[in-house]
Amino acid sequence: MQTQLALTAALLGMCLAGTALAGPQPGDLRVTDPAQIRALGFDPATDEVFLAAPVDDRALLAARLARGDASPQAPNPDVDPIWTSVVGTDFRFNRETVPYTFVSNMSLTCSATGEGYSAYANIEFPNDHRITWMDVWAVDNSTTSGVRVSLWEICQRVDNPDPSLRTVTRISPIIDTGTADAPDAVWLNAHVGPDRWVHAPTCSYLLRADLDCANSAVRLQKVRVLWDYD
């Protein structure tokens, strides 16, 4: 009897683990304020939007360095073997009226005035791998403007296009160069949490960059997302 109960519990555990491959995870915060959902670029009438809980990645970074990385910027292929990168020119602003420049070093700038604008880039990962770190290279020479980058996951049923059945999750923290800071060329990174698994049949992934338009003073150069087999 005890053996059967143990098997039952194990079986249910495996099933539940299988269902947790993609979409919002325990601890993610559901956004319920319609204005906030709209500000995030989604429709409160149809989209379930979640924000990943903050991750204290100091221990993860220490563990990564302990495993043999030369530095977080130069990962050891034996530790974090594979990554996907997009450069500034892979991004596109959210409407055609936003003036932009792709300067010669492949970075993205925004030359509009006034409010900030969002640019998006598709990013792909192979199925059933775990997303780990997001690295951002940018230039910020403005004391009033900056760039903020985040990674999003949109999961949708294979057999139903109804958007009310989708879930949208910001799976990374926002990497921010700061509006009051002018750090010049920067490299910033953050961990997306321990259990962000790619489920390619149902989920798509995109990077969002919110730029305060400051011409070449603020530039987004590259975003690299690491993933592993663990």
Binding site: R92, N94, Y120, N122, E124, P126, A200, S204, Y205, L206
Partner: peptide, 13 residues
């Protein structure tokens, strides 16, 4: 099978 999903916002007009 491999699946690749391209988000709508990645469209090139």
């Amino acid at each position: 099978r491999d699946f690749r999903v391209i988000t709508g916002v990645d469209g090139k007009p």
